[in-house]
Design a protein around this nucleic acid. Sequence first.
DNA 1: CATCGTATATTCGTGGACGAATATACGAGT
DNA 2: ACTCGTATATTCGTCCACGAATATACGATG
Lengths: 234, 234
Amino acid sequence: MPGRRTSTSPLALAVLSTLVERPMHPYEIAQRLKHRGKDQSIKIRYGSLYTVVQNLADRGLVEAEGTARAGRRPERTVYRITAAGRAELVERLRELVRTPAKEYPLFEAALSLVIVLSPDEAAGLLSERLRVLEKEMAAARAALADLMVAQGMPRLFLLESEYALALKQAEAGWVRAMVTELADGSFDGLAIWRAWHETGEVPAEMRQADWFRADQELDGAGQTPLDQESEDSA
Amino acid sequence: MPGRRTSTSPLALAVLSTLVERPMHPYEIAQRLKHRGKDQSIKIRYGSLYTVVQNLADRGLVEAEGTARAGRRPERTVYRITAAGRAELVERLRELVRTPAKEYPLFEAALSLVIVLSPDEAAGLLSERLRVLEKEMAAARAALADLMVAQGMPRLFLLESEYALALKQAEAGWVRAMVTELADGSFDGLAIWRAWHETGEVPAEMRQADWFRADQELDGAGQTPLDQESEDSA
DNA sequence: CATCGTATATTCGTGGACGAATATACGAGT
DNA sequence: ACTCGTATATTCGTCCACGAATATACGATG
């Protein structure tokens, strides 16, 4: 009991939720998910799909109902969800909705390293990003409107797109503010950034600050005397 | 040249950017990154770190400067960044800043499956999430304030935390709205959700809508006649 | 001064993700 | 009738992430 190896992945949950409808073979599951646009919120790779289904079967969350063959197409195995599978689906879904998980978006990582670039270049890149984001948002809004208004699909089935759009909007807002501040020079610390970028050093007047001195303490820790020195090339 | 196997990971970029400062051994790189809080925006696992550094070395982006030994501690290999490494760092960073990448946050996945739960349960879980988010935001704001005001750290070094906070705020806003609408019944389609959840069927009056009929078309596609039927248990 | 907890530093094994390959069916165009 | 592109359906091999184990040093505690 202590320590399930790998906690059920989003793709696995999507599989389970599709099998609630009726038993299916993996390829059909993927078709349904794509048809309903779930591939926008859940990464679906055929390479993974079959592994995932096999794992679910090993864990007793789905079971093979039998194999079917249409014409001389490859043999298909049809799976159905088990009671344990339904329980796992619901439980894991509760957990995902209730508890925010720590994630590592690429853009956040990029921002944490962006001072490697000059502030001017960063400003340019950010405004390019902003343009792309705005295009994406327009497209997303149009798609949503089409589904809801033209096709009459209830919001209920579009929550994830709405949410994604809201986040994108927030990102665009943040980027826009940043671009503005960098452009009109009101960004606090622009001088330090520029200086640091040109000289590779923190300007003298900052070296008194607590954060800088704390940072320096680490130096030397790894600089123990060398007993040997050797060149390798693998 | 066409088709680099794996595009440089965030951890690899963090390694490169740390080595710009001066040559170091992997463990020290990790220490520095953690000390500067980069582990909040970039996932750092020792298991991955050494692999990543080795890959960088294989690609010629860093090179071993030699091995050092302090006392009888394990041998350490000190790496330095190469010219190619600097180029890669800058280039990849540009790309990350300029171009939004498609990602798959867990919560988005959860939302796309949330109709498996009843609307009432969903409302409860979402408001729990909201509480957690608000706590996290308070903590993040406090941490930011401490660093900027008390320790005098320039904003420049805190962009990623600011951004993360902005996104969290947007998420909280969206969740709050959802909770409210679910609670006061103003959520459009609540009746369908409830009906669908209780009966397992889309209510009769919705079955005329375009989206529903399009969806049904898929049915039968995978339901070709079975040539054989057999039980397996692996 | 034995022992224990913690920091230093790296290696290894396993499992999972996924690109690519495989194999068949089928409709459309020449 | 032939073949080419596309849809159906699954398997395989490789690469990579990372948990866990390993090995040593060192300060504190009784």
